[in-house]
Design a protein around this nucleic acid. Structure first.
Length: 442
RNA sequence: GGCGCGCUCGUCUAGAGGCCUAGGACACAGCCCUCUCAAGGCUGGUACACGGGUUCGAAUCCCGUGCGCGCUGCCA
């Protein structure tokens, strides 16, 4: 008979969600979703001192942003609560009593220690295989402390107690815990409980190979939220750190990853975090995602920039135009600003290059006159008008395009000019041409 | 120091004895496309840490060495 799959993510409230932690949560979530199991969120604030609402909220926020919903646990409830260690004192007391009754606990300078049986313990790991650890030498493997003199609990003890109480079937965590695992197994044995299956996943390193920690660039999930990444892109990228579908695909829908994900296919080597690739993947997601989704994700940044776009109906076509240019959602305001502001600013270098050159003013005026007669006003007819005029003037189309773009948008880069002019509308285009002429050639 | 884990292009990876003169992706370079910038397409360079085995044959198995990381806490 197989026990139901129950996995957990058990972060300590440090104030933010680390990408390494996010990836651990992700792998737990994937395993739960793949097997139809339960994903539990437990907060490891071993005591009141560590309990910090704000820090805990940062974790919820990061997980939710990544779409890692938990079935049971903090803020959600369930049959195995409470899900904050700071509230589980009585349970730990009870378990301590079990070991005390068996004579496995002794006092040392006020702290309580667990007396190791001093045997060889073999850890069976889904990712790393079976590894024997010789714990017979007290010099190298001292008896672990389970409770401090002030009554607060030590991680190893409460972690094991909670996993037993919450009926966790698979412990999926960072490889930094692999060497701690034999100690945990000793505890399971002492409680007379079969240990869960373990799966230690490789660590995420900095590009230079050092361990990624708080201050490192890109270490906090929050930074991806702020920099305008799409959550599905970051999540997809994280999936590829230590796992792969093995068929050369990299961008794949989460539903498919869920169906393909197996603990056995997780790599054993640690992975360097490649911000360039994450950035590239974000651009790919942005280009491919539906316009409505793109709009939803862009809105917070547009609002933060204070752009007065009127209605969503008016905004969407503009976003459709610039969508393919965007690599970070934070770039959206800069791409669309000129559209909603007739008093847009001009990029000086672009003005210099495209407008203050021989014949540019004359071409712009001729273009204005030419565009005044285009019917109907569509990207196709506008394009034809540009080409016709260029031919008539005996110049390359580019010599009309560049001045027109700078005149209409203030910049030299942007999406397809013809589509942009169409959307802007003839009146505004011609008015912008006039404004530009008056401003630079009074 | 001890113990553990790891070691394929700069990075993420495919590879589970012959399919590998090692494949894909990011990044990089060049070319093409083109109204700009991107995107896209094409091409190119760069990798099995080292040394011994085992085998007809090893990136793949074994043993050393080296390097990296982790643990070794009354941190989690």
């Amino acid at each position: 008979m197989s026990t139901p799959v129950r996995v957990r993510f058990a972060p300590s409230p440090t104030g933010f969600l680390h990408v390494g932690g996010a990836r651990t949560a992700l792998f737990n979530w994937l395993h739960a979703r793949h097997t139809g199991g339960t994903f539990v969120l437990r907060i490891e604030d071993t005591d009141r001192e560590r309990h910090n609402e704000e820090a805990v909220r940062a974790i919820y926020h990061g997980l939710r942003w990544l779409g890692l919903d938990w079935d049971e646990g903090a803020e959600k409830g369930g049959d195995f609560g409470p899900y904050y260690q700071s509230e589980r004192g009585p349970i730990y007391e009870r378990y301590l009593g079990i070991l005390q009754d068996k004579g496995m606990i002794y006092e040392d300078a006020g702290a309580l220690r667990f007396r190791s049986p001093r045997e060889t313990v073999t850890v069976h790991d889904e990712v790393c295989g079976s590894i024997p650890f010789d714990l017979s030498n007290p010099g190298t493997h001292p008896d672990m402390t389970v409770r401090r003199p002030d009554g607060s609990w030590i991680f190893h003890f409460v972690n094991v107690v909670d996993d037993i109480e919450m009926k966790i079937s698979h412990v999926i965590r960072g490889e930094d815990h692999l060497s701690n695992t034999p100690k945990h197994v000793e505890l399971y044995k002492a409680f007379g409980v079969e240990p869960p299956r373990f799966a230690h996943i490789p660590l995420i390193l900095n590009p230079d190979g050092s361990k990624m920690s708080k201050r490192d660039t890109g270490a906090s999930v929050q930074s991806y939220i702020q920099q305008g990444y799409a959550p599905e892109a970051v999540r997809n990228y994280l999936c590829l750190l230590g796992w792969s579908p093995k068929d050369n695909r990299e961008i794949l829908p989460i539903e498919e990853i869920i169906s393909l994900f197996e603990l056995k296919n997780i790599n054993r080597r640690s992975a360097g975090f490649d911000l360039d690739k994450c950035f590239w993947m974000n651009g790919q997601y942005l280009i491919q995602m539906p316009l409505e989704r793109f709009t939803d994700l862009s809105l917070p940044f547009i609002n933060a920039a204070g752009i007065n776009y009127g209605t969503r109906e008016g905004l969407v076509p503009v976003l459709a135009l610039v969508k393919e240019k965007v690599k970070h959602l934070t770039d959206v305001p800069a791409w669309i600003e000129f559209f909603f502001n007739d008093d847009y600013t001009y990029d000086e270098a672009s003005v210099e290059k495209s407008l203050r050159t021989e014949g540019a003013l004359g071409r712009l005026q001729a273009l204005g006159a030419h565009l005044a007669n285009v019917e109907p006003w569509t990207a196709e007819t506008i394009e034809a008008a540009f080409k016709d005029l260029a031919a008539a003037l005996g110049v390359k189309t580019a010599l009309l395009v560049h001045p027109a773009r700078v005149a209409a948008t203030g910049r030299s880069v942007g999406p397809s000019l013809y589509h942009l002019l169409e959307l802007l509308g003839r009146e505004r285009v011609l008015a912008r041409f006039d404004r530009t002429r008056e401003k630079f050639f009074p």
